[in-house]
C-alpha cells in the first residue's frame, strides 16, 4: 500500500522505494521509510517477497512445480546472500527494516501517515479505508536487477476430513458446488476477498478496483509451499531473519535455522 498524497507514483524497485521514503523522512513529512513488520521473532511471511527477489529460497521445486522437501534452501549460499542484501536495509544499515516494527504497529504507522509505504495484505483494506488515508495498491517492488518480488499468495481451500460424518455430502459439496462461479461470487459478497477463480475474478474486478489491484499485486506471487515440512520453517527462519535485520551474523543465523529445520523434518 502506498500513501498517494506522500508518494504519488508506485516505485519500480525496492531501492527506489527506500529513496522516496528516505526523502520524505529527511524532509520531516514522515517518521518512517516503510512500515514492514519484522518483530523480535521475524516475519518470514512478509519477508518472502524481498527474500525471493534477492534470490533466496526455502525448498527446491522440480520442473512441474512440485516442492522437494529434501532440497532445503534456508542455509544455501543463495539464501544467505539474499538475507545479507536485505540486512543492508536493517538496523545496522539503512534502518528501514527494524524489529521494533511488528504486526501490532505496522498498520498504524501507515494509517497515521507516519510511513508512506506499507507491506500489507487484503485484510488491511477495510481498516485503511476507515483510516481515511488516500492509498493505492501496487506490487511489492523487487531489488534492482534481481528477480521480481514474490509475496506469498494465501487462499482458502476446502478439505473433507478423513473419516468425518456425512463425507458423501461433503465431497459432493466440495467437488461439484464449491467450484461453481456463482458460489465463488457469493463468497466474495460475504467477505470481499479476491476470488480464486478466473471467471469470478474478472467479473468482480470490473466493479472493484481494490480487488483488481490486489490480484495484480499478486501476479508475481507464489503459493505457499503446500508440503507439511513448510510448517517447520516459520519459527527458525523468522528468528534467523530477525537476527539478520538486527545486524547479527547472517550466515551463522541462516545456517543454524537450516540445521534446526532439517532436524525437525528428519533430514
Amino acid at each position: 500500500m502506498r500513501n498517494t498524497a506522500l508518494a504519488p507514483d508506485a516505485p519500480e524497485t525496492f531501492e527506489e522505494l527506500v529513496e522516496i521514503g528516505t526523502e520524505l523522512k529527511d524532509a520531516g513529512d514522515t517518521s518512517e521509510v516503510l512500515a514492514m513488520a519484522v518483530g523480535q521473532e521475524g516475519e518470514p511471511f512478509r519477508m518472502n517477497a524481498l527474500f525471493t527477489s534477492a534470490g533466496g529460497y526455502l525448498f527446491g521445486q522440480d520442473d512441474t512445480g512440485t516442492w522437494d522437501p529434501t532440497d532445503l534452501g534456508v542455509g544455501s549460499d543463495a539464501s544467505v546472500a539474499a538475507m545479507e542484501k536485505i540486512a543492508e536495509y536493517g538496523e545496522d544499515g539503512e534502518g528501514v527494516l527494524r524489529r521494533s516494527i511488528d504486526v501490532e504497529n505496522d498498520a498504524n504507522l501507515f494509517y497515521e501517515e507516519e510511513a508512506p509505504f506499507f507491506v500489507a495484505g487484503p485484510w488491511n483494506v477495510g481498516d485503511a479505508n476507515e483510516a481515511g488515508v488516500d492509498f493505492e495498491i501496487s506490487p511489492i517492488p523487487g531489488f534492482e536487477g534481481e528477480a521480481p518480488a514474490s509475496p506469498y499468495i494465501g487462499y482458502h481451500a476446502f478439505f473433507v476430513t478423513e473419516g468425518s460424518a456425512n463425507s458423501a455430502l461433503a465431497q459432493e459439496f466440495v467437488t461439484n458446488y464449491v467450484t461453481s462461479t456463482d458460489f465463488i461470487l457469493s463468497l466474495y459478497e460475504a467477505d470481499p476477498r479476491t476470488p480464486v477463480q478466473n471467471e469470478a475474478l474478472e467479473s468482480v474486478s470490473a466493479d472493484d478496483a481494490t480487488i483488481a489491484a490486489i490480484a495484480e499485486a499478486g501476479a508475481d506471487g507464489m503459493p505457499m509451499p503446500s508440503i507439511p515440512e513448510m510448517g517447520e520453517t516459520w519459527d527458525p527462519l523468522g528468528q534467523a531473519q530477525a537476527q539478520a535485520i538486527a545486524g547479527g551474523d547472517v550466515r551463522e543465523a541462516m545456517e543454524a535455522a537450516h540445521d534446526t529445520i532439517a532436524e525437525q523434518i528428519g533430514q
Binding site: 510448517g231 517447520e232 519459527d235 527458525p236 551463522e252 535455522a257
Partner: peptide, 29 residues
C-alpha cells in the same frame, strides 16, 4: 525470546512450559 543464532528452539526467557509448547506444538506437527 530472544533466541541465540545457534539454538532457535530455546530462548532466553523460555520457561519449561513455553519450551514444551514450542517443541511440541509448533505449527506443522
Amino acid at each position: 525470546g530472544p533466541f541465540s543464532p545457534d539454538n532457535p528452539t530455546a530462548g532466553g526467557t523460555d520457561l519449561l512450559i513455553t519450551y514444551t509448547y514450542r517443541l511440541a506444538f509448533n505449527e506443522a506437527t
